[in-house]
Simulated scan of single mutants.
Amino acid sequence: MDSHFLGIAELAEAPPVAVVVDVMRAFTVAAWVFAQGAEKIVLAESLDEALELKARHPDWMALKDGPLAPGFDMVNSPGMLRSADLDGRTVVQKTTAGTVGALAVKEAELVLCAGFVVAEATARHLRTHGPDSVTFVVTGEDGQADEDLACAQYIARRITEAETDASEFLRRAGESRAAAELAQGVRLGVHPDDVALCQELDRFPFAMVARLEDSLMTLRPCPVLPG
């Protein structure tokens, strides 16, 4: 299997199979949203679209990067989501990088969204489908975010190698610019546990598959059997 690692701006067209990686924090947050019971996540193009979707669907909830803002229910922080009751809910998510990356490949045949928390499940899902080539979309810092690249490279290796030591990949994530900014409070809407939660390997047993549903890019959990 061939693996390609591209930033969002490098995507000339949607590849057949794409894995969109945002470790800190969009797709770590998405995994926690599902763990707290949500049925689906709708990925919004803009903050205005997120609010419009919520206005049309009053029972939906919306989250964004940064501090809480009028009309939004949650912020893009796994630490703040651990106590949320999202049973059966639809959550609209808009972030700076992760949701942008997923929307950039919405025409792909298969789109998975990932972070370390669903790394093994993502690799297993790809092994099941057996693609000849996978494009990993490294969403942060114009494709240079080391936490995202490390996670993408780890998943790529796990597709073909049953035994892969994650320690070096996790170390890179922990020493990344994003981790430092979160730990130092440079970014707003942060919980003290966010960096650690983003580095939890294989916390959840599901992959996250995104596809167009009624013209909306919609993310859902996909349970993956062990083995």
Rank of each mutant, 00 (worst) to 15 (best):
D65M: 04
I159L: 13
D87K: 14
G174V: 01
R25M: 06
R127S: 11
G7L: 05
S46F: 02
V134Q: 12
M61C: 12
T128G: 10
L112S: 09
H129W: 07
V195R: 00
A162T: 14
V118E: 03
A18H: 06
A97M: 09
I41A: 02
P67E: 14
V29D: 00
L6E: 07
W60C: 00
N76I: 00
T218A: 09
H4G: 04
E161D: 15
R172G: 06
L225D: 12
V186Q: 07
V186K: 01
D73H: 11
V134E: 03
A183Y: 00
T96L: 03
D202L: 06
A150C: 11
L110W: 13
G7M: 10
D85I: 07
A102L: 15
G98L: 12
A162R: 13
A9H: 15
M217A: 14
A26H: 09
A35N: 15
D2G: 05
G88S: 08
M1K: 12
V75C: 02
F136N: 10
A50L: 10
G101W: 11
E168P: 05
S133P: 05
C113K: 01
A18N: 05
A104T: 08
E120Q: 15
L43I: 11
A102N: 05
G143I: 08
K54I: 05
E141T: 12
A50F: 07
R187D: 05
D65G: 15
G7R: 10
S46H: 04
E163F: 08
A119H: 13
P223T: 01
S176P: 06
R220S: 14
